[in-house]
Every structure is written in structure tokens, then in C-alpha cells.
Amino acid sequence: MFERLFAHAITGAARLITGARSLWLGCAPVPTKRIYFANHCSHGDFVLLWASLPPSLRPRTRPVAGADYWQKGAVRRFVINRVFNGVLIDRDRSDPSANPLQPMLDALDLGDSLILFPEGTRNQGDGLLPFKGGLYRLGQARPEVELVPVWIANLNRVMPKGRALPLPLLCTVSFGEPLSIGPAEAKEDFLARAREALLALAPEQA
């Protein structure tokens, strides 16, 4: 109960501040098993993407987040585990024998969708950093999952890194056409193609 209220408060605030507008350009908001992969500039990214989904899809769409950041402190743990039902991954590889992708594969096998930031970290510049390989390996291991590029525009201006007070500028979340990995497609080729597909959704920079 409290978790749901909290989720409503957070998504409500995100939508109020940013006027969040969802543009479903390449696919419809339907409950297909998907990995939404997006550009990453701010901690607000997954909140805004999550808030841009129809309420019925939110409980089954889980953000993938770094355990090192989100396990620190009771508030962060509550938010990521109870409110957003996040999938925490071990970015530091503290146990080298464990497959770092396993929590995500488990979530997909339960029928959930994921929100993933393939740049791996927040990007302080324009454009996109090179993608990490996880997106490719997940897509290969679970070929039935749709890989949907999502561009979050303007949020880096709303919440610049290291600033506490958000600016009330308008943000747009654009959902592109789902990708799948070709039968013989190499990792580098696919990651470059996915990166291009995501960049194609970005509005022109001035």
C-alpha cells in the first residue's frame, strides 16, 4: 500500500516537473516482454521512463540498476526494491564465478520486462557513450524478447549532475522500433546498430 502511494508520488512529481510526453513512434504500449534500452544522463532517467509507461505495464517493467549505488542506505534500498521492484546487478563483479546477467535473465524468465542503460554509467556529454555488451548477450540468450530503443530528451537539463534543484523544463520520451539480433550478427555490429537506432530518436542538437 505505502509502496504504491510512494510510486504514485514519485511518478506524479516526475510528470508534473517535466510534463513528460510519451511518443510511441515504433511500437505500441502493449504488455509484450521487452528490454527498453535508453540513454542515461541522470538518476531521474529510469523514473521518467517508468512514468512514461501506461500504469498497467509499470509493475511488470523493472529497472536494472547498479547494486553498488542502490544498496547504500535504507531509503535507496526501499525505493529500488519495494517501489520500483528493480533488478540489482553487481557491477564490481565481487564474485567472479557468478554470471552478472543472471538476475536479468531470471526476471525475463518470470515474464517481466526490463529497463536497461547500455552505456553503463551516466553520460555527461552529448550523444551516447559506447554500449556495454550486456544488451547483446541478453538478446542472444532470450531471442523472443523485443529490444526497444528509448530516447529520453532534455532530462539532462532538468537535473544536471550535482545540482539539487530540478528545472521545470519539458521532457519527451520517444519509443522506437523494436530490434532483434540477426542469426549471424557479431556483437560489435549489433551494438553499433542498436546505438544508431537510439541516436536516430534523438532530436537535433543545436
Binding site: 528545472l167 523544463l169 519539458l170 542538437q205
Partner: peptide
């Protein structure tokens, strides 16, 4: 907010 959203500014 509409004006500043459409006006590119820097960090």
C-alpha cells in the same frame, strides 16, 4: 517553460 525548453542552453 516552453520557451526555455526549445532554447538550447548549456550546463
Amino acid at each position: 517553460r516552453e520557451f526555455i525548453t526549445l532554447t538550447p542552453t548549456r550546463r
